[in-house]
Each structure stands twice: as C-alpha cells, then as structure tokens.
Amino acid sequence: MAISLDRRAFLRTTGLAGLALGLAACGDDGAPAASSGGGFGSVKLQLSWKKNVEFAGEYFADTNGYFKAAGFSQVELLSGGGSGTSVESGLATGRCWAGLSAPTITAPAVLQGAQLKIVGATFQKNPFAIVSLKKNPIESAADLAGKRIGVQDSNELVWNALLKANGLDASSVTRVPFQSDPSMLTSGQLDGYVGYVTSGPVRLRMEGHDPAYLLFADAGLPLVAETLTVRQETIEKERDKLKAFLAAEIKGWKDAVADPAKSAELAATVYGKDQNLDVKEQTEEAKMQNELVVTPDVKANGLFTITPELIEQNIASLAKAGLTITAEQLFDMTVLDEVYKADPSLKLS
C-alpha cells in the first residue's frame, strides 16, 4: 500500500489555533445524554489516519455489535490524516465526540488552552522507528553515527528529540532529504530512514529484502500512540457514556489482537475498501502492531491502560521535544480504571 510516511508527523499543528475558544463553545455533536437504560445515541470517533488495519479494534467493535450492546445507536468512524481536520480541532468544534491521536499532537493543544485529556492508548509503543537493512543494520542509537538517514521535514521534531535523548550531535549523522521512497534504502543511497515500523519493514520484506528496525521507544524516546482523546467535559458530564464506549473498544481490540487475518479482511474489504489495501500486507501489519498493543503491562492491567511509570516516561519524552507539560494536564486514567474494576473479565486472558 503506497502511503506517505509524513502521515505520522511527530507534531501536526493543523487547526490548533483557537482551540481554547472552540472548546468553550462546543457541545457533544447532538448525542443524547446518558440515561439509566443506556440509549447513548450516535457519536463520532475520528481516526488518526485513513481506514486501514491500524483501527481493527474499532472495526470489530462495530461489526460484532459491541458498540450497540453498550447503548450506542451508531459509532461513526471518521477518517483522519492528510490535510483533514485534526482530532484536536474536531473535538473543539464538535465534529467528533472522541478521537485517536498522539501525545505529541494533543500536548501542544492542551498547552494552548484546550480542555482535552488522553484516557487510554491502543499502542503502548509509538511505531516510529529507524528502518534499515540487516546487511547494514542500525540496532542502537549509537549506530546512527556516520550514517545517512532519510528524514522528512515533517518528522524533524521527532528526529531531533531522538538525537537529544541519546546525546548525539546532529553533525554526527548525515540527514538526507526524504520523501517516503524506500528504494533510496534498498539502492544504497541511505543507511536508514525514519518510518513507521508497522508498514516499512513489512513492505520491504514483501519486496524480498531483509529489514531491520530500531524503535524510538526502545532508543530513549518512549511514547504511546493511537491515544483515545476526549474533552474534559465528557469525563465530567458523560462519564457513564465514556465508560460504556471504552468497554466496547476493549472488546473490539481483544478480537483484533486474537485474529490478525480477520483484522486485515475487515480493513481491506469493508471499512477501507476504497483504499486499495492488500490483505496479505495488512495481515502482516496487524501482526506487527500487536507487538505494540500487547505488552507485559497490558497483559497484567488490560488493553488501553498506561502505567504511571510509562506516563512519566511520556512526559519526559515530550520535554525532549520541547513540550513541557505535566501528567495531570494530559492524562486521566481514572475512567479506564473504573471500567476494569467493574468488569475484570475485560482483561486479556
């Protein structure tokens, strides 16, 4: 699948201006308030990118009726990415009720006054990685010295943060202009490039190459991703509705983790059928992303949970990117805690 790597720009500023004003005026896009019998009506969930296998859990929650069983007449999945409206702007204007984003995008919005909170994370590790080939592997940050690394302009902030996290001088690495063309790696023009671990290595492998990769999360820059983000007022005024939604999401992701092939099928033939996705490639990507979704902590605590230790690591990583924010400003895990306390069976078996 031909996709641009800048879809995962470490910091997107689209629509951040005026968020504080927008949030003061927005409602909950017409969805009725929670009632004792369920009846949460229709809500919109904005995805962080176009409909591919990254959102398999949402597809299962919809297909298998978990959203409806939780009391929602419909959960509309809105495509994101490209030049479209950011999740943060969508929340500000009421375009969406919840969204999937990243701390590096939500933090700047919060620092500008947006009343938003991250209440869970699908990916415990951000998929950003240095992608290389095993015949010339980059297996640690120290291996970057003297190498030619392709970095898109849109990923400059994450690149600089990685260097800072590892005490590397930018002059020790040759940064090469890059427009998401892996052939620059396979032809020897590059030693590695900043890409997405769930897609880059899979594509290289399918083309007959033997890829290697170094996750930023394993190289001093731990960050969660696909973070479920909502307005503060949703936590305060629609807590039961949010808990019902989270429970349905968890059930959907349990199914997705258990069945990468079905995840790929739903992505390629149903939800993302207009994206010309390859089922085989999507299946491999689903397997790769499971490694980012299911960690020892998730096995112990449940999907979407983020430990206090990992939250503090995220705050430290954001600081390396020049974003000074506190855990209390950005995260609220109390809603998810209540979900698992009410139904421990939601945890992975």
Results as ranks from 00 to 15, higher is better:
163 L>Q: 10
137 P>E: 09
208 G>W: 07
140 S>T: 15
221 L>V: 09
211 P>S: 00
221 L>I: 08
138 I>E: 02
110 V>L: 02
127 P>W: 12
142 A>W: 05
120 G>Y: 07
183 S>G: 03
149 I>H: 01
173 V>L: 10
216 F>D: 01
157 L>N: 15
187 S>T: 13
134 K>G: 07
233 E>A: 12
142 A>R: 12
215 L>N: 02
230 V>N: 03
233 E>I: 06
129 A>C: 15
146 G>F: 08
226 E>F: 09
201 P>M: 02
120 G>T: 07
152 Q>F: 10
136 N>E: 05
220 G>W: 01
156 E>Q: 15
224 V>E: 12
218 D>G: 06
135 K>I: 08
230 V>L: 03
171 S>P: 13
142 A>L: 05
212 A>R: 04
164 K>C: 11
137 P>L: 11
219 A>Y: 09
107 A>C: 01
127 P>M: 10
217 A>W: 04
218 D>C: 07
224 V>K: 07
107 A>F: 02
192 G>M: 00
214 L>K: 11
116 L>I: 13
125 K>W: 01
221 L>H: 05
200 G>P: 04
182 P>L: 05
126 N>H: 11
223 L>A: 03
131 V>Q: 10
108 P>E: 09
131 V>D: 08
173 V>H: 06
127 P>T: 14
203 R>E: 15
180 S>R: 06
146 G>K: 06
172 S>I: 00
132 S>Y: 12
130 I>W: 08
106 T>D: 07
195 G>P: 07
153 D>R: 15
184 M>I: 01
218 D>T: 04
116 L>A: 11
207 E>K: 14
125 K>I: 01
204 L>Y: 01
203 R>G: 10
198 T>W: 04
221 L>K: 05
172 S>K: 05
228 L>F: 14
170 A>H: 14
114 A>K: 02
143 D>S: 05
205 R>Q: 14
208 G>Y: 05
182 P>E: 06
184 M>C: 01
115 Q>Y: 00
165 A>K: 05
119 V>D: 07
153 D>Q: 15
157 L>R: 15
126 N>A: 10
143 D>L: 03
152 Q>H: 13
216 F>M: 03
196 Y>G: 07
138 I>S: 04
210 D>K: 11
147 K>M: 04
232 Q>S: 14
202 V>Y: 13
138 I>Y: 05
233 E>Y: 03
190 L>G: 04
164 K>L: 13
159 W>E: 12
173 V>K: 11
227 T>V: 11
219 A>T: 08
124 Q>R: 15
178 F>H: 08
167 G>I: 08
146 G>L: 08
201 P>A: 03
165 A>E: 09
140 S>L: 12
114 A>L: 04
134 K>I: 10
232 Q>L: 11
195 G>M: 05
227 T>F: 00
194 V>P: 02
141 A>E: 02
119 V>L: 06
130 I>D: 07
197 V>D: 01
151 V>S: 07
234 T>L: 08
130 I>N: 06
179 Q>M: 10
211 P>Q: 00
112 Q>F: 00
